[in-house]
Design a protein around this nucleic acid. Structure first.
Lengths: 146, 146
DNA sequence: AAGAGTTACCCCACATTTCCCCACTTATTA
DNA sequence: TAATAAGTGGGGAAATGTGGGGTAACTCTT
């Protein structure tokens, strides 16, 4: 499982180091390929197989239904397969960098089955946002029996 | 499958480079012909066979039903077959360029079975639009276990 | 019907990006 | 404190994308 936060620098060439403990997870699963996709304000990285299962399901959905198109455009279209270089870095494609507002300090955030890649400022803003709605969360957790 | 985004420049002659990874998909399928068609706010590019299947179905539909006519006018009529030049570019016919508002920075967006061609500003507007109507998509996400 | 102007298509040359490599600095562990 | 691992920076070759010239085909005008 991917857990914990790491702060890494995005270098001038658009490369981002993946924390060793995340790479370990991939290696243990026997496939080091990573898929980078888009979410609302950040990027999401999936192990290849995990992503493949999702993409295959979506590929069988309608090719014309507007809702499916919207879903594909938003969540599927940006997916880019990539592999760490010998130094444990991946190249973030320029459009994804731009979308997620990445430059300089980047937060890598473990989300159990995958991990997210956040611009530092956006990450803090996101946490504030969540904490502002904290009441909703606590009742949600209560419902889950946590 | 076509996946990932690319940003390319539309040059003064109306030519657009097709990303190498998209060209690879076409080559692997053994037919490099591409069909450009119109959609609502963007262009859509299909591998020839993929398009052929759609066009054949539509060709068997009514020649007088107003809905079929409208559909033909909107989605089918603009279809243009084209081939990449030696540099991997296609010429976007001027009416299609105009319709999709293409100039300067263009986004190429992988949609699994085909790919879309967006003006940059429109692409970002489209994403905002989708995100504003997020509720519509939740059923897919639930089905997919996302 | 002929000529001027435009468009499409071929080509080549240059710029940029990507990918692979090595070296250095900083952190962690023994 | 030494030794190892992790992360950062940058060089260089190959692949990819961009710009632009020239010729042939076509259109439009006169």
């Amino acid at each position: 499982m991917f857990t914990g936060w790491s702060i890494h620098a995005l270098d001038a060439k658009g490369r981002l180091a993946i924390p060793a403990r995340f790479r370990d997870v991939l290696r243990d699963e026997g496939d080091e390929r990573l898929v980078l996709t888009t979410s609302e304000r950040c990027l999401v990285a999936y192990p290849y197989n995990e992503w493949r299962a999702i993409a295959d399901k979506v590929s069988r959905l309608s090719r014309v239904d507007p809702k499916v198109l919207a879903f594909r455009r938003y969540f599927i279209s940006g997916a880019t397969e990539s592999l760490c270089d010998k130094q444990g870095r991946v190249l973030i494609p320029q459009p994804l960098r731009e979308l997620a507002g990445l430059d300089g300090q980047v937060y890598l955030v473990g989300m159990q089955h995958n991990f997210e890649i956040w611009d530092k400022d956006r990450w803090y803003a996101e946490r504030e946002q969540i904490s502002a709605n904290f009441g909703d969360l606590s009742s949600f957790m209560a419902d889950l029996g946590i």
